[in-house]
Amino acid sequence: MTTASRTVVGNLCLGSAPDSWGVWFPEDDRQVPFTRFLDELVTAGYRWLELGPYGYLPTDPEQLAEEVGSRGLQVSGGTTFGALHRPHEWDGMVAHTRRVAELTAAAGAHHLVFIPPMYRDERTGEFTESPELTPEQWASLGKRADELGKILLEEYDVRLCLHPHADSHIQTQAEIERYLNESDSRYANLCLDTGHVAYGRGDAIDLVRRYAERIGYVHIKQMDPEIIEQVYAENLAFGEAVKRGVCVEPPAGVPNPATVVAALSELDAEIFVIVEQDLYPCAPEVPLPIAVRTREYLGSIGLAGSKRPGARA
């Protein structure tokens, strides 16, 4: 894979992800082909990308390297899903996570974004399990996160970054903090998704300041506060909230992107800041103009500054 240049402001490195092109699933006829996503990512001015759902981009390392490298792109991290609180799924989940970690490492990346399952169906909004974990499930979740993170770090040189998510058991500020307190910073850390934290009525800036050493990776995203209020007033599922436009492009919504960038820039670590705007489903022509405007806005607040040769984050 060719070496790209990072777009950085101090310690921050800007990228984007398939999510910003309306991609939620490995295969879906309402999603753009991966080649169009990669081409438009370049057109929008990005040079770094997260892999997105395993199977959307090529899973053969050589093919992935060709598709990404031929466009002057480079991979910031991989993405996977798994239920740390379900012991009966452990073996299968670890096996799948290993495959994603192997591809991530082969692409030269060192972060694996781990997304917990939603307790409501992604398409229908129906509850599939209780929204509350028991104390025993919480304790197991922390231990399992450590165990998985240790495997990833020692065998693949990839760091586990758990991603808080709407309609998951790690959504609210209290749940995020409980995960951090139940797990070991050597092996299990946080992908700070600013939009999902806001969706759960949390405070991303507070998390940055109090848990700086646990933030290994960031998704920068904004949510419409009026639609968030509708979520709680009407008991909406996340899929319905996305259809209503809960995820908005900057500088609209919360939290304030400039405040987030300022807080992250004070940390003593190099951090990928990956743009996400949940758009599923959307018309094929929708994502590119948004991606261009978003990169231009982030540049205006300093996140698209100087370039330097890529180095490990």
Rank of each mutant, 00 (worst) to 15 (best):
T194A: 00
L180S: 09
R186M: 07
A198N: 03
S185H: 11
A198Q: 03
Y187W: 14
N189L: 05
H196T: 00
E213H: 15
I205P: 15
C191M: 09
E177F: 12
Y211G: 00
I220P: 15
Y187S: 09
E182M: 13
R178Q: 15
A188F: 11
R186A: 09
I176G: 01
I228D: 03
R178V: 06
L190V: 02
H219F: 14
R214K: 02
P225V: 01
D193E: 05
G202F: 03
G195K: 02
H219N: 09
D206I: 00
E229Q: 13
R201A: 00
R186P: 03
R178F: 12
G200T: 04
D206S: 10
Y211W: 15
N181R: 14
H196D: 04
S185G: 12
I215L: 12
D184P: 02
I228P: 05
V208N: 05
Y217P: 06
G216L: 13
R201L: 10
A174F: 07
Y179T: 03
R210C: 04
Q222K: 01
D203C: 00
I205A: 06
D224H: 11
N189P: 12
Y211Q: 10
E177N: 09
I215E: 11
G216S: 08
I205E: 11
L190Y: 07
A212V: 06
D224S: 13
E182K: 10
R210Y: 05
A188P: 14
N181S: 15
S185Q: 13
Y199C: 02
A174T: 06
V197M: 01
H219K: 06
V197R: 03
L192V: 00
E229V: 00
Y217M: 08
N189H: 07
L207M: 02
Q222W: 09
L190F: 07
M223L: 13
Y217Q: 08
E177R: 15
L190I: 03
R214Y: 09
M223S: 10
P225M: 08
D184W: 09
G195Y: 03
E175S: 05
A198C: 00
R178K: 15
S185E: 13
R178L: 15
A204S: 14
D193Q: 02
R214H: 07
Y199D: 07
H219V: 05
V197N: 04
Y217R: 05
M223G: 08
I215V: 15
I215D: 12
A198K: 02
E177T: 07
I215A: 12
A174W: 10
I205K: 06
A212F: 12
L192A: 00
V208D: 05
R210W: 05
H196A: 02
Y217W: 13
A212I: 07
L180T: 08
S183A: 15
G195Q: 03
I215M: 13
N181G: 12
Y199T: 00
P225R: 07
Y179V: 01
R186K: 09
E226P: 06
A204R: 04
E229Y: 06
I215N: 11
H219Q: 11
S185I: 15
G200E: 02
H219S: 08
L207Y: 06
R186C: 02
E182H: 15
V208Y: 09
H219D: 12
I228M: 10
V218D: 13
Y179E: 04
